[in-house]
Amino acid sequence: MTLGLAFDLLLACALLWSAWRTLSTPRLDRAIILFIAFGLLMTIAWIRLSAPDIALAEAAIGAGLTGALLLDAYGALRQRKRRRKAS
């Protein structure tokens, strides 16, 4: 087994694990962080597949923009929850 194949297998296992954990975690904040980590792992997978244009799009849109929007929505959700408890 070559080093490249071992890295690819490890990457595939990490992708499957992070996808499963993202979908199965009960905490929303943890799910968002795992989603961002999954996007970054997908970026590495696209680089390994010699598709740098798709890797760049995945990093910018998949992990970056979508992750930032999800974190912002989570912050707004927490603020709304606090306001409801206060009133």
Rank of each mutant, 00 (worst) to 15 (best):
I33F: 08
T43L: 00
P26N: 00
M42I: 01
L65M: 15
L3V: 09
Q79G: 08
L16C: 06
Q79V: 09
L23W: 10
M42S: 05
G39M: 00
K85R: 15
D8A: 15
A14E: 06
M1K: 09
L77Y: 14
A12P: 06
I54Y: 09
G67T: 00
L28E: 09
L3N: 07
T66P: 06
D72G: 12
M1W: 03
D53R: 06
S50C: 05
C13R: 06
Y74N: 12
R83V: 09
G75E: 14
K85L: 15
R82T: 06
R48H: 01
W20N: 04
L28V: 12
L34C: 09
P26H: 05
T43K: 02
T66E: 12
T66A: 15
G67C: 05
K81L: 09
L10H: 08
P26D: 05
W20D: 07
L16G: 10
L34P: 04
K81S: 13
A76H: 15
L56F: 08
W46Y: 06
R27Y: 08
I61M: 04
I54R: 06
L69S: 07
S24L: 10
L28H: 08
R27I: 06
K85E: 13
A19P: 01
I32L: 03
G62R: 02
A59L: 07
S18F: 04
A68I: 13
I54M: 11
G75T: 14
T25M: 08
I36R: 01
M42R: 00
A57H: 03
I44M: 05
L69T: 06
D53F: 07
L77Q: 15
P26W: 00
L40I: 03
E58K: 04
G75F: 15
G67Y: 05
L15A: 07
R48Q: 02
L5A: 10
L16D: 01
R83G: 08
L28A: 11
L70R: 07
A86N: 12
L41W: 02
D29F: 11
G62N: 03
D29H: 13
I44L: 09
S50A: 09
P52V: 01
L56D: 01
A45D: 02
C13S: 15
G64I: 02
A19L: 11
A68W: 13
R30Q: 07
E58L: 03
S18A: 13
A73I: 05
G4P: 14
S50L: 06
A45K: 00
